[in-house]
Amino acid sequence: MNPDAASTDRPSGAFDNQVVEAFKTIPELLSRDEELISRGRLLDVECLLGPTVQPFHVTICGGQILDMTPAPVLMRSWRFAYRATPAAYRAYWQAMPPPGWHDLLALTKRGEATLEGDLHPFMSHLQYFKDLLALPRGGGLVGAS
């Protein structure tokens, strides 16, 4: 895949749905990752994560995802948001991501993701969030390799 060829957040039906569905697997994947949960043991935060076409309100408590609900939710607050294009997630989740698509902050640098809000919980648990959002990597997302 050439990520540059699909580097916008235009909705494109099936492709976007695959990314959204893959993102939905993160809570289940996290629940089986005791080491990652342990690294987030002091983390309690309400944040907005996911593809630009369908972000999710995510409630994290003690490193575990207690709730993940599709946005928007009426008057729901979040401390920070990390949203990336579907193409960015698909590239990030490849077993061998292409250069420049292999890190959350590489994606923000190239304009494929945005990071907003109060960044303290994100920066104080930066590796946690990098690993959390990488959980679907290599999971057989159609089109990823």
């Binding site: 250069p99 292999h102 890190d103 303290h120 104080s124 930066l126 590796q127």
Partner: peptide, 18 residues
Amino acid sequence: DVHGGEVCAALVSGLIAP
């Protein structure tokens, strides 16, 4: 209010090839 070692390491971790 941010662990220096952890945040420095986490930032540069993305600069390593997968």
